[in-house]
Design a protein around this nucleic acid. Structure first.
Lengths: 231, 231
DNA sequence: CGCATTTTTGCAGAGACTGCAAGATGGAAG
DNA sequence: CTTCCATCTTGCAGTCTCTGCAAAAATGCG
């Protein structure tokens, strides 16, 4: 789960043994096979056996990696902040302003590596297509958000001092965080692209993300502030 | 779903034939049996056959009512506005202010009948206990929120004139609506009760709901407005 | 190489879920 | 009341998901 601090390997995070690498590859293969087959033939027409076969493992092995077909489809995408991001946020930084810091914290969900950004963007679009084609996947996707929400709630509680992740303020913050995140992702998917462009392949995903996130925060402020003043 | 406008029957909404009444009863029986058995023995220890047996129908019939075991557990609770509420909101009322009207619209999710309120309150607590005991139900519960969200988005789009439920403003509104709703429900569950009171049985659920909803809107305003002014 | 650990695989089985066709049952018309 | 239709229930056969277990293969290490 961690300890990627090995010697500066060739690429991103290749500092683990053969065993670990193979596992990651198998997991990735299963995920990709699942997505490809389902997009191609539909969810019901694809069995776990098919996916396992396409990934060159036994169907039993499939379940060593994913608990269900849906799980394999939704995959593992980033559902939490980086370790540093977490540390900075829980210790009250970087600015001290709750909303600004929350924004910074959310930004660390996607790392700094440009390659990682391209992957994230592709995954975003792919999941969108997948859910559009197979609405029955919605539950699993939403469950991911719920998980994220609980992590965020815990971090906010840590920042507030009280460890009470169930507390009202922590829940409010977490709810806001995931809501803002969802809306940001929605706008990101809509902004400036045709209905079903395969993948925009932006050069500056992180910049886009930050800009859209700012706009999102602004939109929320307007939604709440303007009507309040109008009243 | 509608047409409950029959002659003033004895109780709530008994103006349909025997057939319809039996179906409703069966559905309710299945739901109740499912919840009771699972709370008692745990999700894995209860099979669909058990539930069907407890409700005195064949297991095949179970699937005529609910598509899955989880579905039967989550049940049918209110996941949309009343017809009037919908009509008022989409035609720009009742006040004209988006946020206030959204609040009014959300309030119509729970009707006016006090008996209905008690049921709603009980369901709320029961679902909470159920999800706490069986976290694997979270996906289905979240999926319900997603459904609600899409309905709300459609209504907002209708109010805005453009029928574009995918549009940015409609999505923002819908996201806000479900978020506010979720937070309201969270506070409602927490407010003034021990950790696991079976059910508070309030005399004035609707009043409580309205009060908490107001506080929720206020909390959101503060969250966004105060930091903005502080900057 | 030989041993310890981890991973993969096959197998058997429980349970979820579906399509189908036959058997009840409610409602309405005569 | 009888008859007929539409609908609901049920049993059955069958597919697929998912789990526990133990043997077999692969990996890492001394």
């Amino acid at each position: 789960m961690e300890g990627v601090r090995g010697r500066p390997g060739s690429d991103g995070g290749t500092a683990m043994g053969l065993r670990e690498r193979k596992k990651r590859e198998t997991r990735r293969n299963l995920h990709r096979a699942a997505v490809r087959l389902v997009l191609e033939h539909g969810l019901d027409a694809v069995t776990v056996d098919d996916i396992a076969a396409a990934a060159d493992v036994s169907s039993r092995t499939f379940f060593n990696y994913y608990a269900s077909k849906d799980d394999a489809l939704v995959g593992d995408g980033p559902l939490g902040p980086s370790e540093e991001g977490r540390a900075v946020f829980t210790s009250g930084g970087p600015t001290g302003d709750p909303v600004d810091d929350l924004k910074a914290y959310l930004m660390t969900f996607v790392g700094d590596d440009p390659e990682e950004h391209r992957t994230a963007m592709r995954d975003l679009y792919q999941r969108k297509r997948l859910v559009q084609q197979e609405p029955s996947l919605m539950p699993r996707v939403m469950a991911r958000f719920a998980e994220t929400e609980q992590r965020v709630a815990a971090d906010i509680a840590a920042r507030l001092g009280d460890g009470d992740a169930e507390g009202t303020r922590a829940q409010l913050g977490a709810l806001l965080a995931t809501t803002l995140m969802r809306f940001t992702m929605h706008r990101l998917k809509e902004s400036g692209h045709g209905p079903d462009d395969p993948a925009p392949e932006p050069e500056d995903f992180r910049e886009d993300l930050e800009r859209v996130m700012d706009e999102t925060f602004q939109a929320f402020r307007e939604f709440f502030v303007l009507p309040a003043e109008r009243a």
